[in-house]
Design a protein around this nucleic acid. Structure first.
Length: 428
RNA sequence: GGUGGGGUGGCUGAGUGGUCGAAAGCGGCGGUCUUGAAAACCGUUGAGUGUAACAGCUCCCAGGGUUCGAAUCCCUGCCCCACCGCCA
């Protein structure tokens, strides 16, 4: 959520900044609602004040032994007025909140202009895509041929079990998948100073509102159908960031708070029919090692640079060529002020494809969540800044390894850093 | 699933329907003392909204209700704790 004060005081400036991401702010509706809200609120509070003072008086008058009849009559009159005003205020506040809840975050100054992913700007590349002396296969074909009796990567049997966009992994591929999780967790914990955390994979509406998935993106989520209205998490970002919802940290020594969480992620992929239907790129269920930071406002810009570096480290250790892009205004996510994507090289597609996304949300999520800390300078509560990033998406890393490390006979060489985790040097 | 007890400020924890935004303690902040620190002592300290600053308003899990007046009474929901049963 944006700062309502900022929105009120300089709506034109906000609208201009939101324009960068293709969002049109309806200033007129907003400001007229806002004016209405103010008028009614002033009126309501005046009536409340009158009621309160008279009610207090009744106690005193009664104690003095005098008659309270006239006062009662006055209060009664106030109450009926108040009931009307209250109702009005409630309804307008609801309208206003509904409007505010779907306004996206303001992009950072250095976010490039642009309409969609084609306008994202590459900021660096690492590694050299390998030249193959044979015809490369994609991970689907590779996975089908690996394994003794059954495919090591099996989409057909998964669709029998569940449906499309799911996978079954066996043997060496399943083990590689697990090894990747271990490797990533170990690096972030031991080398990057993260604390490991394990959280629920189902969350309530409030949590999803806090990080910004609700109310706008419900169709992307899987929802349970029991009366509790729980949702499967689309990313660990939701439960982990919401750890500090409605919290006020007293001790700023806890900051920055850096948490790493391995979890499955569930996405309905409602809007992506027909996109990446082959293979593991876009699944309804995948796993991810997620990095979440809570920092003081003045530290968030630097924290994003560190976060993206942590994610890149993993690819470097795995020897996977990648490039890093900064998302343009039109491609940036709803809650984010600034996002870097890391894209890994896929030989079968001759393209770089997203494998990580690291964002600075500034106080946008914190305001929705009321996640605060006490600033020792002022002694006052202030909103935290939140950040998160994938470090990395496991399924996509797995397929990148399969494709980049494939050998002519269809086997997969195991990257050196993974060998201690795997106990083997190749998967066949 | 059964029975009982609870949800109060950063934390622990009191709170006869009016003088309660709320005792006390801890923690925090400021000070006295000290070479410095600790201890001790004194003072101060809820969140939000609003204002130039006051004032005002809202908030004692959430949502309804009773009442002139609700942290306090009633209803519903959620959550927590204890014991019993069942169980990975």
């Amino acid at each position: 959520m944006l700062d309502p004060k900022l929105l009120r005081s300089s709506p034109e400036a906000v609208a201009k900044m939101l324009k960068k991401r293709g969002f049109t702010l309806d200033i007129e509706t907003l400001m007229s609602l806002e004016q209405e809200r103010k008028d009614i609120q002033v009126k309501t509070e005046y009536l409340q004040q009158q009621r309160n003072s008279r009610s207090k008086n009744i106690g005193k008058v009664k104690a003095a032994g005098d008659g309270i009849e006239p006062l009662l009559k006055e209060v009664d009159n106030l109450k009926s007025q108040l009931a009307v005003a209250d109702e009005e205020l409630k309804s307008i506040q609801e309208k206003l909140n509904t409007l505010l809840a779907v306004i996206p975050n303001i992009p950072a100054d250095d976010v490039p202009e642009g309409k969609d992913e084609d306008d994202n700007v590459e900021i660096r590349r690492w590694g050299q895509p390998r030249t193959f002396t044979f015809t490369v296969k994609d991970h689907v074909d590779l996975g089908m041929d690996l394994g003794d009796h059954y495919a090591a990567l099996d989409f057909d049997v998964a669709s029998k079990l569940t449906g499309s966009r799911f996978a079954v992994m066996r043997g060496g591929i399943a083990r590689l998948h697990r090894a990747l999780i271990q490797l990533m967790l170990d690096i972030h914990i031991d080398e990057h100073g993260y604390q490991e955390i394990n959280v629920p994979y189902m969350v309530n509406k409030d949590s999803l509102f806090g990080t910004g998935q609700l109310p706008k993106f419900e169709e992307d989520l899987f929802k349970t159908n029991d009366e509790r209205e729980l949702y499967l998490i689309p990313t660990a970002e939701v439960p982990v960031t919401n750890l500090l919802r409605n919290e006020l940290l007293q001790d700023d020594q806890q900051l920055p708070l850096k948490l790493v969480c391995h979890s499955p992620c569930f996405r309905s992929e409602a809007g992506s029919h027909g996109r990446d239907t082959r293979g593991m790129i876009r699944q309804h269920q995948f796993e991810k090692v997620e990095l979440v930071n809570f920092v003081k406002p003045e530290d968030s810009e630097q924290a994003l640079e560190e976060l993206i570096a942590c994610a890149e480290t993993i690819l470097q250790k795995l020897g996977l060529p990648y490039r890093t892009v900064i998302l343009c205004g039109g491609d940036i996510g709803f809650s984010s002020a600034k996002t870097y994507d890391i894209e890994v090289w896929l030989p079968s597609q001759q393209k770089y494809r997203e494998i990580s996304s690291c964002s600075n949300f500034r106080d946008f999520q914190a305001r929705r969540m009321k996640a605060r800390y006490r600033n020792p300078e002022t002694g006052k509560p202030e909103l935290l800044h939140t950040l998160n990033g994938s470090g990395l998406a496991i399924g996509r890393t797995l397929l990148a390894i399969m494709e980049n490390y494939q050998q002519e006979d269809g086997s997969i060489a195991v990257p050196e850093v993974l060998q201690p985790y795997m106990g083997i040097t190749e998967i066949r």
